[in-house]
């Protein structure tokens, strides 16, 4: 049995590695979108104007409450039928990125709210402007509290990326390639074992990076 396990990998190394890199590319682009849009939406959510807050709220509720698979269908099949020539890559990374951005925005918002109101009032009364208060007092402390939730979100996003391959978009990501190997060799356990290892490599790397960041921004008690 262990021999069969290694055979499946060595016979289909090109499939597994191309699938792995497709997943890496999907995850990196989606992560960039999620962080950028997430930060913008979080900024709206904590903005002084109630209208901007509401706008951010609508974004979060829409993207957090629609299943990712539905987003993928709308952004690909739906937009294409509407006449927009969107590619599977753009639809996939945009859907995963925008979906994750809603969660990122909520994590950032809760981080900002974790900084006591007294500190903000003290800072303002000492003559800092609102922007300075945010930049110098609130955000450095907020960042420390959101490292861990952002790490969990990134790991969840890596795993969610597998939905893109099995959906209508049919991008050849790690899970898709494992299924192609499975359908060709009929070696189900072996093919999915290596897919799991591939995802574990990615999530493991993220876990290590998060630990490192946490250690660096630790409060020395």
């Amino acid at each position: 049995m262990p021999l069969a396990l290694i055979d499946v990998l060595s016979d289909h190394l090109s499939e597994f590695s191309s699938g792995f890199w497709v997943t890496v590319r999907l995850v990196v682009v989606s992560f960039a979108i999620a962080m950028t849009v997430g930060t913008l939406v979080a900024a709206l959510r904590i903005a002084p104007s109630p209208w901007l807050q509401r706008l951010g709220g609508v974004y979060v509720e829409v993207f957090r409450n629609v299943p990712l698979l539905v987003l993928l269908f709308i952004s690909f099949a739906g937009l294409r039928r509407g006449g927009l020539d969107i590619s599977a890559w753009v639809a996939g990374t945009a859907s995963l990125g925008l979906y994750t951005a809603a969660y990122v925005a909520e994590a950032l918002r809760s981080g900002v709210f974790s900084v006591g109101k007294g500190q903000i009032e003290a800072s303002l009364s000492l003559g800092f402007t609102y922007g300075q208060t945010l930049r110098r007092i609130v955000l450095p402390q907020a960042f420390r509290t959101v490292i861990s939730p952002l790490g969990s979100l990134t790991i969840a996003m890596i795993k969610n990326s597998a939905i893109i391959g099995v959906s209508l978009l049919a991008l050849p990501d790690l899970l898709k390639q494992a299924r192609i190997v499975q359908s060709r060799t009929f070696q189900t356990d072996e093919a999915f074992f290596w897919a799991a290892v591939g995802y574990l490599l990615l999530t493991g790397a993220v876990t290590l990076a998060i630990r490192n960041l946490e250690r660096r921004f630790e409060i020395r008690r």
Binding site: A77, R80, R81, D85, L168, A170, K176, I180, R184
Partner: peptide, 29 residues
């Protein structure tokens, strides 16, 4: 999947789960 790789090696294969998805993909271009 195998036949097309032999007969049309340069085609870009989209491998989906069911043929209704193929119908959707050709209809939406």
């Amino acid at each position: 999947e195998e036949n097309l790789k032999k007969q049309a090696p340069k085609a870009e294969l989209k491998l989906v789960d069911s043929y209704s998805e193929c119908l959707e993909l050709i209809q939406n271009g």
